[in-house]
Structures are given as C-alpha cells and as structure tokens.
C-alpha cells in the first residue's frame, strides 16, 4: 500500500537530510506507528506520502501509484484515497460538525444525496451521534479530533495518515481516539500514525517503525515505544 525504496529527502538550505535512504513497506490493512523524537523525519515521511514534498532520490509508491510519475493534475485524486488527521484538528470554526464533515465531500463534487446518507453514518462511527449540529468551539478536544477523523474517513480512503492525533488530548480521551482509529483500521483501511505517545504505542501492540535523524533504526511488528531489543 505504501512502499518507500531508498528515499532521501533534503530540504533546501539544510545540510542534514530529513530522510536518509529510507526503505519501508506498509501492506494493505496494516496499522503502523511511526515513532521517534522531534525532527527525526516522521512528518516528512507523511508529507511524502501525500506528495506535498518530492524526494531528492528514491522511489515512492502509494496505493499502487509511482508518485514520481504522478502528474500534478492527478495529485488531488491520490489525496482522495488518503485521509489525514492532525494534532491541531484543522476544523472550520464557522461550520458545525455535520458541515465540517460534509465539506470534504462537497469540495470533491459528491452529490448532495450521497452526502446526506454517508455523513450521519460516519459521525456515528466516530461516536458523535447527536452532536451533528454543534459548533467546534462547543466541543472538547477529543470530540473535535473525532470530527477530524470523521472528515478524514468519510470518503472511505484506503490509507489514513494521523500526525500526532493525540498530541493535544489528555490520556484518558486518547484511548477513545485510538479506539476510533482501530475501528477504522478494522474496515480494511491502512493506518499510519506518527506519535510521541509511548503509553498508546505500548498498549496497542502494533507494528512500530522508529526513525532517528532520518534513518529507520527499528521496524518491529507488535512493538512497543521504547527500545525493546
């Protein structure tokens, strides 16, 4: 599903590469934690998957597509198959829960009838039934992140990228967020989650890929956050 082959990314004006000859394979339906200290290259990895950045060398395949050969014109279609969740939720403050989720479908031109059908379903999936008409400011951090996840998942993407989704949320609420991610993963969606949260990684017992200074230092199935050799 995601295939990195010897990928190196150096940002302009920086000597040290953000990613240094990284090769990794993520299969369909996998749940992968991407761990490592700040600046280790986790976010760069996610940005490369979205083709927001281009690698300096190496090949990236996402959902069977060679990103180097994917024209800019087709990048939006790639992104429709990838859902994204961020630490800062990125909701539209002037739209309510339903409208925030529906926005993701409106802007890719889905018909109104389809939107009316699927948005309530996905709001229920993330556990926000009955809150469809609340505004983001009326919701807790955990609930806002659920809205963001509903928006990321409403188009049934093949891949869900989560960049520190629990970074702004207290540990108790984080468990609920992880349950939603797990539920999404069980529908067959590949989930790739960058995180600092050791407790969550340890409790989930999923594959862990650890980055340090742009290199993969560990790739372990059913791993934990800390060094566990």
């Amino acid at each position: 599903m995601i295939h990195f082959d010897n990928v190196t990314k150096v940002y302009a004006n920086q000597n040290r590469p953000a990613l240094d000859h990284v090769s990794v394979d993520v299969d369909k339906g996998e749940f992968v934690f991407l761990v490592g200290p700040s600046g280790s290259g986790k976010s760069t990895f996610l940005r490369l998957v979205l083709k927001e950045e281009r690698p300096n060398s190496g090949a990236i395949h996402v959902a069977g597509k060679d990103l180097a050969k994917l024209s800019n014109f087709k990048v939006p279609h790639l992104r429709r198959r990838i859902g994204c969740v961020f630490q800062d939720f990125r909701l539209l403050p002037k739209k309510n829960v339903y409208e925030n989720v529906a926005f993701a479908l409106e802007v890719i031109g889905k018909p109104r009838r389809f939107i009316r059908k699927v948005v309530p379903e996905v709001i229920e999936l993330v556990g926000l039934e009955g809150k469809a008409h609340r505004m983001p400011e009326e919701l807790s951090g955990g609930e806002q992140q659920r809205v963001a996840m509903a928006r990321a998942f409403v188009n049934r993407p093949m891949i869900l990228l989560a960049d520190e989704p629990t970074g702004n949320i207290d540990p108790a609420t984080s468990i609920g967020i992880m349950k939603v991610l797990d539920r999404i993963n069980r529908t067959g969606t590949t989930v790739l989650m960058a995180t600092h949260d050791a407790a969550i990684v340890d409790s989930m017992r999923k594959r862990v890929v650890e980055l340090e200074d742009g290199k993969i230092v560990r790739d372990q199935s059913r791993g934990v956050y800390g060094q566990a050799y």
Binding site: L50, F73, P76, R80, R90, V107, I108
Partner: peptide, 17 residues
Amino acid sequence: RRETGIMRLVGASNVYI
C-alpha cells in the same frame, strides 16, 4: 487559507480550489 488547506488535503481539484 484554512479552507483551502483542507480542500487540498481532502483532494479537491485545483479548479475547485
């Protein structure tokens, strides 16, 4: 920029943005 950022992420086409 908020709206367009989200539109970009969810794969809205350039024309649409």
